[in-house]
Design a binder for these strands. Structure first.
Lengths: 92, 92
DNA sequence: TGCTAATATTCTAATATACGAATATAGATA
DNA sequence: TATCTATATTCGTATATTAGAATATTAGCA
């Protein structure tokens, strides 16, 4: 679905869907404010089991909200998508 | 759930959930760009049945994304929530 | 009052999401 | 290679979402 200004509504609705869960929004918000972060640190900080965090990360990845890269034996996640960064910057 | 800066994560995740459906995002985006709009005009413009539009409007209302007021025998919806307006302004 | 147009609600079935528990995999390093 | 740590996947169940169809409600007006 497209609007007048040729905005990709489906792309944005996918982003919003990914951000619509409190745990995922917290992960994304923190990644936008702080440095990148690995999975076990997130699990510890959030008090959420590692498999659950991993499931949420998969959803965020599939919506192109976050990207991950391996660093030694862990995987660091960060936000590169400028659309997502702009959205999260509005949060006050 | 709260973050460092005392942002209300639950409030925002509710907003994002409301915006996570293509039809609802289109409605909200159009209301943010154009003037307010009544239900049957939305139904016509979107090509979506009136009851379905009304259901989506209820979800947007409950998430405090839109507000409605009666004007004669129709109901006009608009966006007043500044947080929502700021989010939608980021869409390019 | 009775009719009409606009909007909202209810119901149902199909589909999607969430989460905990258990298990699997991948890569680093001894 | 064997093992350890970090991360991902699968499974089952409970719950939520979606959309269409039918119906109900509301307010304006003849």
């Amino acid at each position: 679905m497209k609007t007048d200004k040729d905005i990709d509504i489906n792309e944005y609705s996918e982003i919003f869907k990914a951000l619509a869960h409190p745990t995922r929004l917290t992960i994304a918000y923190n990644l936008s404010k702080k440095a990148e972060c690995n999975v076990s640190k997130m699990s510890e900080c959030l008090g959420v089991p590692q498999p659950t965090v991993s499931q949420h990360l998969t959803i965020l990845k599939n919506a192109n909200v976050i990207t991950g890269y391996r660093n030694g034996n862990q995987i660091c996640y960060k936000i590169e998508n400028q659309k997502v960064i702009k959205i999260l910057e509005q949060m006050v």
